[in-house]
Amino acid sequence: MNLPKRILYNDSLNIEIFSKMIGENWNISDEIFKNYILANISISMTKNSEMKKDINKLYDLDEINYYKAVKNSSCGNHVIITGGTLEQEIQGRKVLGLLLIAEQNYNLRNTMVNLLRKHYPIVFNAVKKHNKKELAIKYFQLDKITRKITGRLEAAVYFYFSIYRSVDAVDHGFIKSIINDLKSFEFYNPITRDISKELELHKSEIKEIKTLLKREYGKINSYKDILNINIKAITELSAILENFFIINKLDINLLFSESNYINIDDILLAYIKAGNTS
């Protein structure tokens, strides 16, 4: 993959223009890169009450235009935006509206940069000082799962600062890292893939496992068949699962009350993707 040899900060450069450069050099739709960056930044600004307060105050100044911007953008339906809670999605779409308008509005862009700087000072300093040491120390202190999510979100914030606040050439190594993460997320992560194609790919394995299950335990139609199966390990796990739902004020029976049929193929696909076989 080749990138433009030297991409320097200038007043006309924005995420859309940069995305087109990436698209031309990587032979992908520029929308993919742009939406990935904007979606991650949007969610990065939903993480605490202070962020939400700052965003809501700004959004309320021109909410109709920001709403229209999201409505007319494919990014509003990106899985990173829609994949969390409803509250997070609503808040993320507000941030997205601001970011979309800021692409063409210099004053709003400065405001967004300052907000990001306020809430992500370590990331900002890493860009300005060309030193990721403090950022690396922060990530080292996080658990693996939190580090993975935080790293993805903050990489987009880092990119935003690089485009709009760094007078030096954009860090090619870092951009390549983002593109590799994007490639993994957009083209290989099950959350963004067409599961029907995955099911077709593993069709023979799924069929073989289903045959073994039916022979051993009978036909499985609903989630109750799984939860009530007379196998100690599954019984123990189902009890833990049910208690987990109850602790979080959710009734598993109500959640699945209309699910008379369960897609066993999806469950077996998850089993296979974890590296298991019949």
Rank of each mutant, 00 (worst) to 15 (best):
Leu135Met: 10
Lys144Gln: 15
Tyr164Trp: 15
Ile220Glu: 06
Ala169Gly: 04
Tyr223Pro: 10
Ile149Cys: 11
Tyr188Asn: 01
His130Arg: 05
Phe140Leu: 09
Thr111Asn: 07
Asn180Cys: 11
Lys132His: 10
Lys219Ile: 14
Asn114Ser: 12
Leu213Arg: 13
Asn110Met: 11
Ile149Thr: 14
Ser184Val: 12
Lys203Trp: 06
Tyr217Glu: 01
Leu115Met: 08
His202Phe: 11
His202Leu: 00
Asn189Phe: 00
Ile175Cys: 05
Val127Cys: 00
Ile137Thr: 05
Ile206Thr: 03
Asp143Leu: 12
His130Asn: 01
Asp143Pro: 10
Phe124Leu: 06
Ser204Pro: 04
Lys138Asn: 08
Arg109Asp: 09
Lys144Leu: 09
Phe140Gly: 15
Asn180Gly: 07
Leu212Pro: 07
Asp171Lys: 10
Tyr120Glu: 03
Ser177Leu: 11
Gln141Ser: 08
Lys128Gln: 13
Ile206Asp: 03
Tyr223Cys: 14
Lys129Asn: 15
Lys197Met: 02
Asp168Gln: 02
Lys144Tyr: 03
Ser166Glu: 04
Ser222Leu: 13
Pro190Gly: 15
Lys138Trp: 01
Asp168Gly: 03
Asn131Ser: 03
Ala136Asp: 04
Leu182Lys: 04
Ser204Phe: 04
Val123Ala: 08
Pro190Ser: 04
Leu212Cys: 12
Lys144Trp: 08
Ile149Pro: 07
Glu208Phe: 00
Asn131Gln: 02
Glu134Tyr: 09
Phe161Ala: 09
His119Ser: 08
Arg109Val: 11
Lys207Cys: 07
Phe185Trp: 06
Thr146Asp: 14
Phe185Gln: 02
Lys210Gln: 15
Arg165Asn: 05
Arg193Cys: 02
Ala126Gly: 09
Leu201Met: 12
Leu116Asp: 00
Asn180Glu: 14
Leu116Ile: 12
Phe174Tyr: 14
Ser166Ile: 00
Lys133Thr: 08
Pro121Trp: 01
His172Arg: 15
Ser177Phe: 13
Lys219Asn: 13
His202Lys: 06
Lys144Ala: 11
His130Tyr: 11
Ile145Glu: 15
Ile209Lys: 03
Lys132Cys: 03
Ser204Asp: 02
Lys118Asn: 05
Asp168Thr: 06
Phe185Thr: 04
Thr146Lys: 13
Ala136Val: 15
Val167Met: 07
Thr211Asp: 12
Pro190Ile: 02
Pro121Ile: 03
Asn221Ala: 02
Val167Phe: 13
Asp181Lys: 08
Lys148Gln: 01
Lys144Ser: 01
Arg109Leu: 15
Arg215Asn: 07
Arg152Met: 07
Ala156Asp: 01
Asn221Met: 01
Lys132Met: 12
Ala126Cys: 01
Arg152Ala: 01
Asn114Gly: 12
Ala155Trp: 08
Leu153Met: 08
Arg152Phe: 00
Pro190Arg: 10
Lys118Cys: 05
Asn180Leu: 05
Arg117Thr: 13
Leu199Gly: 04
Asn189Trp: 12
Ala169His: 05
Arg147Leu: 11
Ile178Pro: 03
Ile163His: 02
Glu154Gly: 01
Ala156Lys: 02
Asn131Gly: 03
Ile191Ser: 08
Glu154Ile: 00
